[in-house]
Simulated assay, not measured.
Amino acid sequence: MKDILREIGMIARSLDSISNIEFKEYDLTKGQYLYLVRICENPGIILEKLSELIKVDRTTAARAIQKLEANHLIEKKADPINKKIKCLFPTEKGQNIYPLIMKEHHYSTQIAVNGLSEKEQLLLATLLHRVRKNVEVSWEHVKKGKKREY
């Protein structure tokens, strides 16, 4: 079998590295742009849901959120019903950066699929979606403290 996950990992790390360099001037490093995008797309999201969307543990997400908040890109607001729950919202500064991040995302997507037909792009997207769904099962399993059988 081909080493599919190695290829996916190299693609992800390359694009993440590019983004970290290009977004540094906006105080976005170490993948923080991912968090900002999800918060802009889901204003009022809570930390737990955000960490599930990005597929990271809560501690990692909490550190990224602290940095985004310190850089005035997002803000926490108490939930109107349960004041203990903090909802995450982009600030005006964060909202202004969002279109730039999406522009980079669309550009990177075009570079990544260069030379692929529309049909191949659709097939790739479909297959990657299935792969992600398969991996999510293990991610949820391990996240709950369980071990996988090899």
Score class of each variant (00 low, 15 high):
N42T: 00
C40Y: 04
V56F: 07
N42L: 01
T60M: 09
K55P: 01
A64I: 00
L36C: 10
K77S: 12
L47Y: 03
L28R: 00
K76A: 10
I46F: 13
Y26M: 10
Q66N: 15
Q32L: 07
V37G: 05
Y26N: 12
A78F: 08
L36E: 05
T59S: 14
L88T: 02
C40I: 05
I65Q: 01
K55V: 05
L34P: 01
D79Y: 08
I74V: 14
Y26A: 07
P80H: 03
L88N: 01
L50V: 02
F89D: 05
I81P: 00
F89A: 05
D27N: 15
K76P: 05
P80D: 00
K76I: 03
N82D: 13
L28W: 00
L34G: 08
N42K: 04
F89I: 02
I54Q: 04
C87L: 11
I85S: 04
C87P: 02
A64Q: 05
G44M: 01
L47E: 14
Y33S: 07
S51K: 08
K77G: 07
Q66P: 07
A64S: 15
L73M: 15
V56N: 07
L50Y: 01
T59D: 12
Y33T: 00
I81R: 02
E52W: 04
Q66T: 14
K77P: 07
Y33K: 06
P90R: 01
K83V: 03
Y26H: 14
G31W: 06
K77V: 05
Y33D: 08
E75N: 13
K86S: 13
N42R: 02
H72M: 11
R63S: 09
L68S: 04
I39Y: 02
R58E: 13
K83T: 04
P43A: 08
I65T: 06
L88W: 01
A62F: 15
G31K: 10
K76Y: 08
E75I: 07
E41N: 13
I45Q: 03
